[in-house]
Simulated scan of single mutants.
Amino acid sequence: MTPELVAVLAVIAVALVFDYTNGFHDAANAIATSISTRALTPRVALAMAAVGNFIGAHFGAEVAKTVGSGLVKLPTGTPSLAIVFAGVVGAIVWNLITWYFGLPSSSSHALIGGLVGATVAASGAVLWMGIGQKVVLPMVLSPMVGLLLGYLVMLAVQWIFRRGHPGKLNRGFRWAQSASAAAMSIGHGMQDAAKTIGIVVLALFVGGFQDDPTYIPEWAFWTSAAVLAAGTYAGGWRIIRTLGRKIIDLRPPEGFAAETVASSVLYFNALVLGAPISTTHTITSAIMGVGVTKRLSAVRWGVAGNIVGAWILTFPAAGSIGALTYFLVRPLFS
């Protein structure tokens, strides 16, 4: 094998490792509310999330193109592959750190932060305009939208079913949560599998194995989807407990409202804008919005503050790890 092929395969391999960690790190995004409300058993929920991620990956082409060609501009050649490799390692390390502490930080922003940090360390070209429009703006707006819509949708649910019997309503919403959790799983696949696909495409282009930086080979969809699904089925119980139990005490109506809002925001950004937003930010803010309809004190703001702290740290932390990794691996890609 040529050195270029070895380097490309190394980047693809580490991208798939990230994909797997993304699966078990972000499994909570799709299923934590369904598990906490007992709408689904843990294993059934994980299996459904894995299938949903697999399906959703095939609808995330626009997000993949943004990650592959809209964030950094790298010259072709083996040295540039060191940048991509280091950026993905930065994301993996930050994923493992936040998973260990049970903090639902964004795997998406860890990947983008790691890639940008490694690019800056290598004095490469960062497309700041693209990052501002496709990453920073959605990063700020999507939690705000999730919080507001979560609040409004939950108010609507409370008003529509205000005369319903609590026991019957809970049973009905448990069934409804099966659908909303499935929608959330597909949205997660649209976003998170697509980001790994974008890294694979970037590696193929930079390595000189394809001329079009936006072309996605079919095998990239299947491989990324399968690995993300496997990681999701492995579960991420620490983060599932944080999202499902520690922010608010969820019942089936609240879980349904939060999942419906979050999945809608994910679909809009993936299919309409092609923006790589954070599924973690979206579902967490939707849960908070739902919780506020009870009373402000229903949300455990201390836990929420720790989560927001992890959000703020993700970009600089993953970027710093990516930059350090670049200096360590650069000699291997010469």
Rank of each mutant, 00 (worst) to 15 (best):
V93I: 14
L111M: 15
G90M: 00
G70F: 12
K73N: 13
A82C: 08
I97D: 04
P104F: 13
L111T: 05
S105R: 03
L81Q: 08
L81K: 06
Y100S: 01
S107W: 08
G102N: 05
F101T: 02
I97K: 03
T98A: 05
P75C: 04
S108A: 13
Y100W: 12
A86R: 06
T76C: 00
G87A: 14
G113R: 15
L115W: 11
L96D: 05
L115P: 00
A82R: 07
P104G: 06
L111G: 13
I112T: 10
F101L: 09
N95W: 04
I97S: 00
L103H: 10
G87H: 11
S80W: 11
N95Y: 05
I92D: 04
K73G: 01
Y100E: 01
V93N: 07
P75F: 14
L81E: 03
G113C: 12
G70R: 07
L96A: 10
L74I: 10
G90Q: 01
A91F: 06
P79N: 04
A82F: 09
L74T: 13
V88F: 09
L115Q: 05
T78S: 01
T76Q: 15
A82Q: 06
T78W: 04
L111V: 14
S108H: 09
F85M: 12
G90Y: 02
G77V: 08
Y100T: 01
V72S: 10
V93D: 10
P104D: 12
Y100C: 02
T76G: 13
V89I: 15
F85E: 11
I92Q: 01
L74Y: 14
N95E: 00
G77R: 09
G90F: 06
P104W: 14
V89W: 03
G90A: 10
L115D: 08
S107D: 07
A82M: 09
G77C: 07
V84Q: 08
T76E: 12
F85I: 09
G102R: 02
P79E: 11
V84G: 01
G70W: 06
H109F: 13
A82K: 05
L96I: 12
L96H: 08
T98C: 00
I92C: 09
V88R: 05
W94S: 03
P75G: 05
H109R: 15
A110V: 15
A86M: 04
W94A: 01
Y100H: 05
L103N: 02
I92R: 02
N95G: 08
S106L: 11
G113I: 14
L81R: 01
V88Q: 03
A86C: 02
G102L: 02
T78A: 04
W99S: 01
V84R: 00
P104T: 07
W99R: 00
T78G: 00
A86W: 07
V93R: 05
I92Y: 02
H109C: 10
L81A: 04
